[in-house]
C-alpha cells in the first residue's frame, strides 16, 4: 500500500497522494432539479480519517455517494493519487462503503459476507479464509463466521459490514452514518472501536455523521457541511 502510493506520488509530481475532490456538484433530476451538493472540494490523505458533519438533508450522504461512485456527478472531478476516477465505474474504483443499516447479504453467512469482496477480486480460497479470520478478529467477532446474518444484533451487523468493506483492502473507506441505527450506549462504545479498527487497518476514511461527538471520536479532522456546501 505504502509502496504504491509513493510510486504514484513520484509519477504525478506535485499531485497530492490520497483522495482529492474538486468542485463537485450533484444534481438529482426532477422538476425542478434538486442541487444536493455544490462546489464541494476536499482531500483525504492516506491513513487519515475525515468526518463530514452536518444536519440531515445537507447533502453529505450525496457527496459521499458521489465519491464512491453510486451517485452520478454533474460537474467537478474526483481524483485518487492525482488520477481522475470520476468516470471509473463503482466496482473498479476500489472505494469501500459502509451503509447506515449494514446492507448485509441476507442469503450469505457472516463469513461469506466478509468474503464477498475477496471472491470478486479472485483471491484463492485458502487466502480468503485467512483474511476473513483476520477481519473477524479485528472487529471482535472471531468464531461467529458460520452464523446467519439474520441472527445478529444491530451492533454486530455494523461490525460485519465494517469487516466486509475492509476485507478487499479498499484504497478509501466511506462510512455513511455507520452508527446511527444503534442505541446511544452502543454508539459511544462502537465509535471508539471503529476508530481503532480504521487505525489498525491504516485505510483512508471518510465518515458521514450528524453527531459532533461521534465525529470528534472517530476522525482526526472534521469538515462541516450545510445546504449542499462545505463550510
Amino acid at each position: 500500500m505504502n509502496h504504491s502510493t509513493q510510486n504514484a506520488a513520484s509519477r504525478a509530481g506535485s499531485a497530492p497522494a490520497g483522495l482529492e475532490v474538486r468542485d463537485v456538484r450533484v444534481v438529482y433530476p426532477g422538476t425542478p432539479p434538486v442541487v444536493a451538493v455544490e462546489g464541494a472540494t476536499l482531500s483525504v490523505a492516506p491513513g487519515e480519517t475525515v468526518a463530514l458533519l452536518g444536519p440531515s438533508g445537507c447533502g453529505k450522504s450525496s457527496l459521499l455517494g458521489a465519491i464512491v461512485g453510486i451517485v452520478p456527478v454533474a460537474a467537478g472531478a474526483i481524483l485518487w493519487d492525482g488520477s481522475d476516477v470520476t468516470a471509473v465505474p463503482v466496482h473498479r474504483r476500489g472505494f469501500g462503503l459502509v451503509f447506515q443499516d449494514g446492507q448485509l447479504f441476507p442469503h450469505r453467512s457472516l463469513a461469506r459476507n466478509v468474503a464477498f469482496g475477496l471472491e470478486m477480486a479472485g483471491i484463492a480460497r485458502e487466502e480468503r479464509r485467512a483474511r476473513v479470520e483476520e477481519l473477524l478478529d479485528l472487529v471482535g467477532l472471531e468464531g461467529y463466521g458460520a452464523r446467519a446474518v439474520t441472527e445478529l444484533s444491530g451492533g454486530q451487523r455494523q461490525r460485519v459490514a465494517l469487516a466486509r468493506s475492509l476485507a478487499p483492502r479498499p484504497r478509501l473507506l466511506a462510512l455513511d452514518e455507520p452508527l446511527s441505527s444503534l442505541d446511544a450506549d452502543l454508539r459511544a462504545r462502537l465509535a471508539v472501536d471503529v476508530r481503532d479498527i480504521l487505525a489498525a487497518a491504516g485505510t483512508a476514511a471518510i465518515v458521514v455523521t450528524h453527531d459532533p461527538a461521534e465525529a470528534e471520536v472517530m476522525a482526526s479532522r472534521v469538515l462541516r457541511m450545510a445546504d449542499g456546501r462545505l463550510l
Binding site: 453510486i70 466496482h91 451503509f99 447479504f105 464477498f116 469482496g117 470478486m120 477480486a121 466486509r164
Partner: peptide
Amino acid sequence: IDPRLRFAAATLGASPWRVWTRVDWPL
C-alpha cells in the same frame, strides 16, 4: 431487494453482471 444491497456489492468490486448473479439471483 434494497437497491443499496446492489451498491454494497458494487463497492466490493462486483460488476453489474456479478451483482445480478451473486445478489439478485439468489434472492
